[in-house]
C-alpha cells in the first residue's frame, strides 16, 4: 500500500527540501521504492539537492498538463536504485498545477512506488495546498523559533481541514521534525526548547536534526545528507526518522552540547 507523505512547514527556509531529499534517500536505503516530487513550481530546488539538475527533461507541470508521460519525467537516482525524482518546472508558476491533474499524477505514482514524498513550497497558497492535498502522512518541518512554530501550527490546521483525507472525515497522520537544532544555543536559552515546541504544536515528534555544516556541504555537492555522509549526526537523525516512519520504535535523543563536543549525545526520551 503506497503512502503519500508531504513535507511541509508554512515558513520558508526551514529545511523542507533538505528533509525531502534526506528522508526520501533514507527510505530508499531501507529497500523502499521511493519517489520525491518537487511541488515548488517556479522555484525548484530539489533537483539541485539531489544532484539531478542536468538530467531534467520533462517535469511535474508537463505530466500534470498531459504533455509528457510520467515515465518520461521520472529521473532515477544514480546512487540508490530505488530512488526517483519528479522535478518541478522552473519556468512556470503554481497556477500551472490543476487539482485534477495533480490527483491523476499522484494516483499513477501510487501504483509505481511505496513512498511518494511531496516537497511542498513555502506558504499556504495553491502550491502548498496541492502538495498536501492527497497526503496520508505529513512531516511538519519546524525550526525551534517562534515564527516557524506559529507557521507550522497554521499548516497543521490546514492539514486537518483542507486535505482530501480530512474532507472525507479521515485523520491525517502528522509528525513533527525539528530541524536546525543548535545544541549550543539551546543550552544558552537562545532557542525554544523541544518541550516548548511539542507543547505548542501537540503532534508527535519524528526526530530532531542537529544544525550542522554537513547539511550545507551535502547540499552544495548535490547529494542528500543521508547518502553523502551516513555517519554524520544529521544523517543518522534522518535515518532514524525514516525508520520511525517505517514503524520502528527508536528512542529520540536531544543533542546536548557539553565541553564543546557537539557530537556527544545523551539519551533522553521525549513525549
Amino acid at each position: 500500500m503506497a503512502k503519500v507523505l508531504v513535507v511541509t512547514s508554512g515558513k520558508g527556509g526551514v529545511g523542507k527540501t533538505t528533509t525531502s531529499a534526506a528522508l526520501g534517500a533514507a527510505l530508499a536505503q531501507l529497500g523502499q521504492n521511493v519517489v520525491v516530487v518537487d511541488f515548488d513550481v517556479g522555484l525548484r530546488n530539489l533537483d539541485l539537492i539531489m544532484g539531478a539538475e542536468r538530467r531534467v527533461v520533462y517535469d511535474l507541470v508537463n505530466v500534470v498538463q498531459g504533455d509528457a508521460k510520467l515515465a518520461q519525467a521520472l529521473i532515477r537516482d544514480k546512487r540508490v536504485e530505488s530512488l526517483s525524482l519528479l522535478p518541478a518546472s522552473q519556468t512556470r508558476d503554481k497556477d500551472a498545477l490543476t487539482p485534477e491533474g495533480v490527483e491523476r499524477v499522484v494516483g499513477e505514482l501510487r501504483e509505481k512506488f511505496d513512498w511518494i514524498v511531496c516537497d511542498s513550497p513555502a506558504g499556504i497558497e495553491r502550491g502548498a495546498t496541492l502538495a498536501m492535498r492527497h497526503a496520508d502522512i505529513a512531516v511538519v518541518v519546524t525550526n525551534p523559533e517562534v515564527s516557524s512554530v506559529r507557521d507550522s501550527d497554521r499548516i497543521i490546521g490546514l492539514l486537518d481541514s483542507k486535505t482530501a483525507r480530512a474532507e472525507a472525515g479521515d485523520k491525517i497522520e502528522k509528525h513533527l521534525l525539528l530541524t536546525r537544532y543548535d545544541a549550543g544555543r539551546a543550552a544558552r536559552g537562545e532557542m525554544l526548547k523541544v518541550d516548548d515546541v511539542l507543547e505548542i504544536l501537540a503532534i508527535p515528534l519524528l526526530g530532531i536534526i542537529p544544525d550542522s555544516e554537513e547539511v550545507l556541504r551535502a547540499s552544495n555537492l548535490g547529494c542528500p545528507v543521508t547518502l553523502h555522509n551516513p555517519a554524520s549526526a544529521p544523517a543518522r537523525a534522518y535515518a532514524d526518522a525514516a525508520r520511525r516512519l517505517m514503524g520502528e520504535t527508536i528512542e529520540i535523543v536531544v543533542p546536548i552540547e557539553r565541553k564543546g563536543l557537539m557530537s556527544r549525545l545523551f539519551g533522553r526520551s521525549v513525549a
Binding site: 506559529r150 501550527d153 497554521r154 490546521g157 486537518d160
Partner: peptide, 27 residues
Amino acid sequence: ERPVRSGQSIIFEAGDVTVLGSVASGA
C-alpha cells in the same frame, strides 16, 4: 475538543465556548 490552530476562528454567538486544548498564537 482539539487544539485551535493559528489562523483558525471559532465563532459561536449563541453562548459559551469551551476549548479542551490550547488556542494558538494567531487563532
